[in-house]
Structure formats: C-alpha cells, structure tokens
Simulated assay, not measured.
Amino acid sequence: MTEAPPRGLAQRLEDTRARLEEDVDLWIASAGPSETSGAHLVPLSFLWDGTALLISTPRASITGRNLLADGRVRAALGPTRDVVLVDGTAEPVDLADLPPGTGEAFKDKTGFDPRELKDSYQYFLIRPHRVQAWREANELQGRTLMRNGAWLA
C-alpha cells in the first residue's frame, strides 16, 4: 500500500469541517472529579452548529455526572486512519435554553430525540479549544488545526 502525500492545512480544514457536519456519532472521553474515578469513554450522537458540538446523555450516567462535575472532554471522530480529535469544555444546556429548532435539528440528524425519553437527559455544548486531524504518520506534523478556540486558517 502506497502512503498518500500529506494534506495541506486548507485541505485538512475542509475535510475536518466536512466530518463535523456529516458524521453522526463520535466517542466522548470524560473523567470524574477524583483521580480514582478514571477515564470513561462512550459513543454518542452529536450535532455540529459550526462552533460547538451538541450531545445529550442521561444526567445520572457516568458521562453525565463527569461532565456536570468537570466539563473537560475529548471527542474523537472517524476511523484511526482519518481521525479528528476535539479537546474542549462541555457546558450543560437545558432544553429550554437551546436556540429555537435545535432540538429538532438534533433529532433530524441523529435519529435520536432525548426529549421523548423517560430518563432525565442533559444536553451539553462542547466548545472546542483544540482540534487535531491526521490520516497517517506523515500528517502528524501540522495536525493541530485549532488552538485556543481559534482555527489556524
């Protein structure tokens, strides 16, 4: 197998934004407030609004409790040979505080509507601080596309 040449910054940004728009699911890693609780990793559906990821999970779940206690989060999209990593801060958002139409947009994109479930679900907006993307080892250099919440180009 021949390794493709590394993508330039503009192409990586375009590919990353397309993945954020088009993908439906991602992996969320969170950690509890104490060192003994360890890291927790789960797949969740999401909606990208152009600036933040919107997810929803039961408030009583490990992920929900972790994000309510400590909003630091890492999200991963894509396969291992076309990965996008997002480090950010998760902020709890009540359904009533979502912009109009956001609950419907989340349902339409993901096929999942936490508003219809019996369990108490919490929405979280994940505001990215850093975004990285790469496909092969030759793309490790230049993998950071966002730093301190600002896209590099």
Rank of each mutant, 00 (worst) to 15 (best):
M1D: 11
E3W: 10
P6T: 12
L9C: 09
L9Y: 05
Q11A: 14
Q11K: 12
R12F: 03
L13P: 00
L13K: 09
T16C: 12
T16S: 11
R17Y: 06
R17A: 05
R17H: 14
A18T: 14
L20D: 00
L20T: 02
L20K: 03
E21N: 12
E21T: 13
E21V: 10
E21Q: 14
E22W: 05
V24P: 05
L26F: 06
I28D: 01
A29I: 03
S30T: 15
S30L: 00
S30H: 05
A31Y: 02
E35G: 14
T36I: 08
G38T: 09
H40K: 04
P43N: 13
L44M: 13
L44A: 11
F46V: 06
L47W: 06
W48P: 00
G50M: 10
G50A: 11
L54D: 00
I55T: 05
S56K: 00
S56D: 03
S56N: 08
S56A: 15
T57W: 00
T57K: 01
R59P: 01
R59W: 05
R59T: 14
S61W: 03
I62R: 15
G64Q: 02
G64L: 03
G64V: 01
R65E: 09
N66V: 03
N66F: 02
N66S: 07
L68Y: 06
G71N: 08
R72P: 04
R72G: 10
V73N: 01
R74W: 07
R74G: 08
L77E: 00
G78L: 04
G78C: 05
T80L: 14
D82G: 15
V83Q: 05
L85G: 01
L85Q: 08
L85P: 01
L85E: 03
V86F: 02
V86H: 02
G88E: 02
G88F: 01
E91R: 13
E91W: 11
E91Y: 12
P92D: 09
D94H: 14
L95P: 03
L95A: 14
L95F: 11
A96W: 07
A96G: 08
A96K: 12
D97E: 15
L98S: 08
L98A: 09
P99K: 13
P100C: 09
T102N: 05
T102E: 10
T102D: 09
T102G: 09
T102C: 06
A105M: 09
F106P: 00
K107Q: 11
K107T: 12
K109V: 09
T110W: 05
T110V: 09
G111D: 07
D113A: 03
D113P: 00
P114G: 02
E116N: 10
K118T: 12
K118A: 12
K118G: 13
D119I: 00
Q122V: 01
Q122I: 02
Y123C: 02
F124L: 07
R127Y: 06
P128M: 06
R130V: 13
V131H: 01
Q132E: 15
Q132H: 11
A133D: 04
R135H: 11
E136T: 15
A137I: 12
N138T: 11
N138C: 12
L140Q: 11
L140G: 08
Q141Y: 13
R143W: 08
L145R: 02
M146I: 07
R147S: 11
N148P: 02
N148E: 14
A150K: 11
A153E: 12
A153I: 07
